[in-house]
Design a binder for these strands. Structure first.
Lengths: 132, 132
DNA sequence: CGTCTTGCTTACGTTCGCGTCAACTTGATC
DNA sequence: GATCAAGTTGACGCGAACGTAAGCAAGACG
């Protein structure tokens, strides 16, 4: 069961990203795969981080914002002010997400209404020529 | 009450965007202000569209996706296949948003947990040196 | 009349998040 | 030992979404 360590190719297949992407994230210090010689090896931690990265991206966060958030998920520092700072940015992101959550709820309701209106227009247009 | 028509400057102030942005959206056919001579004038319709554009952006949609969505909000075409196509893309966007909504809910719960864990670490670090 | 402000067009510059080579190493295989 | 696949490090390229700067028009104002 060597599902502990994965090569870059396995990672790419598993997460549907390209090698370039993984190296890019590493360059931006979002993940830190080990090296066996020259080759990168990704462990469970790296995979967890990548999951969070991709999730964060889907919410529209920048890689830098995500990097800061990842510190919250990593038991890295024991420095008091560091932890406090990390918490602060985490709370900001949380606020962002909560705002987005509320707005998304509205937007979905909105879009549903527009869709049903359009369905009506579609039905009304049924007796006209079917093409333009 | 000439709140019916607004200049580009008034729009920028109202929506916190730059003139460049408004002209850019126009070039991409997301808004269609009237012209008085050379000057652009924005009416209620334009403002509604801009609101939707900015909202869409916050959800991570591209301007092109937003442009397509806007057709749903504009009583533009009476062409049956056109309306049907518009509905289709609208449903796709809706699905996107619903997925995002669900995932966001998870992510928020997740982040809350990480934050509370971090608070605990912060408390635990209290008796150590307060700086590094 | 000059000039100030507001806006216009055109066009090149910039940042982010990668894509796409090129050239090299390295371990495996014929 | 030649080749081949998999991986590596640069370095440049690219599309999206604007920023920025140059140069022109046109009404307002002293």
């Amino acid at each position: 069961m060597s599902d502990e360590l994965m090569t870059i190719r396995q990672m790419c297949d598993a997460f549907d990203v390209t090698p370039r992407t993984l190296r890019f994230y590493e360059a931006r210090e979002l993940i830190f795969p080990q090296r066996r010689g020259q080759h990168r090896l990704y462990d469970r931690r790296d995979r967890a981080r990548l999951t969070l990265i991709l999730r964060g991206k889907r919410f529209g966060f920048s890689l830098e914002q995500i990097r800061q958030l990842l510190e919250l998920y990593a038991p890295g520092s024991t420095n008091r002010t560091q932890i406090a700072a990390t918490i602060t940015v985490g709370e900001e992101r949380l606020a962002d997400m909560e705002r987005q959550y509320a707005e998304l709820s509205e937007a979905i309701a909105d879009l549903r209404k527009q869709l049903s209106d359009a369905q009506i227009r579609l039905a009304a247009a049924s007796h006209e020529q079917p093409t333009g």
